[in-house]
């Protein structure tokens, strides 16, 4: 269970990015976060990742207060952020504790690499990977520690539509296997609806939760299904009202 209570973030320059964010996510749920640009989606994710300190409020994961980065949380950024000097295997193994034996680390990394469909590229350097492969590698690096909470900030936004669809499928497959709680930020409404059990709409400045929409459409889903299209329309209307409120 992920519990967010009264969460607020005010940056050092005085800018209030988030205020009064309340959200409870049961374990194993897939949550997508949408909202107009600048409403604090990335800020929310960074707070959940423990990379920023909240100015007020708390985040609790599995009943424990979150203070800083946690081994139970995996993060995938918008960019792959691979270490250019490490090959794929070492990049994926990067987050594994040094107390685990080398061979065990290598085996774990190799398994994670196979899960994201990159088997055979263990020795490739980041400069030898395509954008999609690099983002898969970043996903593998986040998964290798078996996090209970997986955070993704517009992970596929730099990729073309076809590749994005494939990576979505892969992410759903992995999610179905491991069942981590997932919070994924996106600006793609289709993506938000296709993936989510719950869609959270952020809005306003400072940003706060404008709507929480449950998505019961059966899986697997496709964009053209009536349930998916209806929900998409609803979200579009909600986003529109956020934009109007902001201006």
């Amino acid at each position: 269970m992920l519990e967010i209570r009264g969460l607020a973030k005010r940056y050092e320059n005085g800018l209030r990015a988030l205020e009064g964010v309340d959200l409870v996510v049961p374990s194993g749920r897939f949550v997508t976060v949408i909202g107009p640009s600048g409403c604090g989606k990335s800020t929310l994710l960074r707070l959940l990742a423990g990379l920023e300190r909240p100015s007020a409020g708390t985040v609790r994961l599995g009943g424990e207060d979150l203070r800083g980065p946690s081994p139970n949380i995996g993060v995938v950024f918008q960019e792959p952020r691979l270490m250019p000097w490490l090959d794929l295997l070492r990049n994926v193994a990067f987050g594994l504790s040094r107390r685990i034996a080398r061979r065990e680390r290598a085996a774990m990394a190799a398994r994670a690499i196979a899960r994201v469909g990159l088997a055979g590229f263990e020795r490739a350097l980041p400069k030898e990977l395509s954008g999609g492969m690099a983002q898969r590698a970043a996903l593998a690096r986040a998964l290798v520690t078996r996090p209970r909470l997986l955070l993704l900030d517009e992970p596929f936004s730099a990729l073309d539509a076809l590749l994005r669809a494939r990576l979505r499928e892969e992410l759903l497959r992995i999610w179905a296997e491991d069942r981590p709680t997932v919070v994924l930020v996106t600006h793609d409404l289709d993506e938000a609806v296709l993936l989510a059990d719950t869609v959270v709409v952020l809005g306003g400045r400072p940003g706060s939760v404008r709507a929480v929409v449950e998505n019961d459409a059966p899986r697997p889903r496709a964009v053209h299904e009536p349930g998916v299209r209806m929900l998409r329309g609803r979200l579009l209307a909600l986003l529109g009202s956020c934009e109007r409120a902001a201006t």
Binding site: R103, E122, L125
Partner: peptide, 18 residues
């Protein structure tokens, strides 16, 4: 798999490549 591990065992800093 053996070569995979062999590579992994090398020092991380500036591992030489062919």
């Amino acid at each position: 798999m053996a070569t995979l591990f062999a590579r992994f065992d090398r020092a991380e800093l500036g591992a030489p490549r062919a």
